[in-house]
Simulated scan of single mutants.
Amino acid sequence: MVTHILFESASGYAIFEVKLQDALGSSSKALQESIEDLGKFGKMVNLLSFSPFKSAAHALENANDISEGILNETLESLLELNLSKPNKKSKVVLGVWDPPLASAIKAALGFQCDTDETTKDLIRGIRLHAPKLLKGLQADDLTKAQLGLGHSYSRAKLKFNVNRIDNMIIQAISLLDQLDKDVNLFSMRIREWYGYHFPELVKIVPDNYQYAKAAQFIGAKETLNEEKLHDLAAILDDDMTRAQNVLDAAKGSMGSALNEIDMLNIMAFATRVVSIAEYRKSLMAYLSEKMNLVAPSLTALLGERIGARLISHAGSLTNLSKYPASTVQILGAEKALFRALKTKGNTPKYGLIYHSSFIGRAGPKHKGRISRFLANKCSIASRIDCYSGTLISVFS
């Protein structure tokens, strides 16, 4: 039967002596009624000692130790001071809430610890009536201490590691995918809009980025002449032939003339499309740098974009490393998998890793086998990147 109770609060440690132990053996309903009534519960437990924390930092240190099941020096000295060493005559049974902390106390001090439901009911009663049972505390002192310690504890748990910034990768790949959609949509819009003025340019310059830069450079087609030919060729990968074709097409274009305000709006939009496309290139370089820093083995195996998509879909590199190879293989094809299971059809052979060049080069009959083999290697590579002390890409 428990003889003492250890109560950990945001203000400090308290040790209660349990009286009327026979009452603990009564029915749970009677015990609950006694716990809710302060008059009855006050006769069941008696405050033996209360040791407040010295500061907020001291409280945070002890809270971290309790959460990890470590016996802090403050708690150890308090227990040694107030509880006698167990012997045949005086048997001390300490009631503790957390089993890991109870194991640490028993290993260090030799006290027998109890963590059963009766002990937890008593601790719940102490927590309920703590402002009345802990002497020297005001009614709102415990609430303020809990709020301050909660904020400090949460901030301390958010550990920052410069070598594992997979959140930056998740945001970057999400933004990159969105930019791809935006650039394609805006490029289509600038082609339609500028096509009213210079429709022949679309066939000569099919690339979206080059088209937007060419439209921005040309402006009104009437202003294009021989003097601008070299600058236009620089935009078109130094292709003088295509630049001459653009000049010839501008002279005989069937497009309609636009007034000044329309041309200004088209040029402003073309400038915006060019700036977004250039930012996409810089973001791709940033993603490549981060992937080589965080997951070099996975990057060497799959490339930056596919590796980043796997990390983003899993939630983190740690989550990805915990997945079995069979899950990595179909990651990204969950809907197809559940639909196949529901309809009893063929399950998918690959998910996001389908875009890998290894699967692309394989024949149709061998794609499933290659995807299974590649998923095994991805699982190994992600675990090396996540748990290896030195980040190198030679393993893949």
Results as ranks from 00 to 15, higher is better:
D37C: 08
A333H: 10
G95V: 10
S67E: 05
W193V: 13
A172D: 06
N376R: 07
A325H: 09
L94W: 05
Y196H: 15
K157M: 12
G136A: 04
A56H: 00
S154P: 00
I235Q: 00
G315W: 08
Y323D: 07
N225Y: 05
V18D: 03
C386Y: 06
R155N: 14
L331E: 03
N167S: 15
K85T: 08
L310C: 01
A277Y: 02
N346C: 14
V2I: 11
L142F: 13
F358L: 09
N87S: 14
G252A: 12
C113L: 11
I380N: 14
L185C: 10
A375V: 04
I266S: 02
L301V: 02
K349W: 02
C113M: 12
L301H: 06
G195V: 01
I353S: 02
T143K: 15
S51I: 12
S84I: 14
L247I: 06
T74Y: 11
R339S: 13
L236Y: 03
L137G: 09
S382C: 00
I218H: 01
I165K: 10
M188W: 07
S288V: 04
E17D: 09
K132D: 09
V2M: 04
S382F: 08
V273N: 00
A257D: 07
A57T: 14
L79A: 05
G136V: 03
G368Q: 03
L176E: 07
L298F: 12
L71N: 00
L236M: 08
Y194N: 04
V205H: 01
P296R: 08
R361W: 10
V92P: 06
I261C: 07
M263R: 00
G25V: 10
I261W: 13
E61C: 05
A63R: 12
A23S: 14
I5Y: 01
R164T: 11
L293D: 05
K85S: 12
F41M: 00
A336K: 12
L47R: 08
F41W: 00
D121A: 04
L149T: 03
P199H: 04
D237S: 11
P99K: 10
L38D: 08
G389K: 10
V2T: 12
R383Y: 01
I66M: 09
I169Y: 03
A249M: 01
M168Q: 12
V394I: 09
I123R: 03
G110S: 08
K159H: 09
A314V: 02
V96H: 00
G255M: 07
G389E: 09
N208F: 12
D114K: 07
H230L: 14
M284R: 05
D231L: 14
I384P: 02
A214S: 11
I35C: 05
K335P: 03
I105R: 02
Y279V: 13
L331G: 00
L331R: 04
S51E: 06
G351L: 08
E278C: 06
K342P: 05
A308E: 04
G252L: 14
L47W: 01
V246T: 06
Q171K: 15
F373M: 11
I330V: 12
R124C: 00
M240L: 10
L236R: 02
A270F: 03
